[in-house]
Amino acid sequence: MVKLKSNDDKEFEVEEAAVIQSEMIKNMIEDGCATSVIPLPNIDSKTLIKVIEYLNKHINMGKAAETGEEDDLKEFDEQFVNMGWEELFDVIMAANYLNIHELMELCCQSAADRLKNKSVRAVREMLKITNDLTEEEEQEIINDAPWAFEGPEIDDTVN
C-alpha cells in the first residue's frame, strides 16, 4: 500500500499495483522515495478521489482483455468522464502531473469530443472565455477557410 496526501492534508491509501500506473509515482517508488506518505501539492482531495477511483478500476489492464471485461471497462470510462468542465480540467491537470497516460488520453479525448461540432460562441461560453479578437480579425480567419464554418454546428453549451 502507498499513502497519498492531497493538498488539503487528507491521506489516501492505494494499492501499489494501482498507483504505479502513474509514471511519476512509479519512478518515486523505484527510486525508493515512497517509503512514507507521498504529498501531492497540486491535487485537492476531491480530484484525488476521482483519480484513485480510475486507478483502482484500471489495475491489470491486460487482464481485462483476457477475461472479456473490456466492455465493462469501456462503460466505466464513459461514466467516469461524465463530469463538469472544471472537474474534468482538474482531473486532466492531475493526470498530467501524475503522468498517467491512459487517464490523460481519456479525459482529453472526452474534452475534445465535447468541443467537436460546437459553434465558436458555444465554445467561448462553455470554457468561460472572453473574446479578445476584433470583428475584422475574426472575419479574416473565416475568409481563410470558409468551409470550416459551413455545415451544421451545435450552439448548445450543454455537455
Binding site: V120, V123, R124, L133, E138
Partner: peptide, 8 residues
C-alpha cells in the same frame, strides 16, 4: 480551423 476564432 473554426476555433481559431475563439481567442487570440
Amino acid at each position: 480551423l473554426k476555433f481559431r476564432c475563439v481567442l487570440k
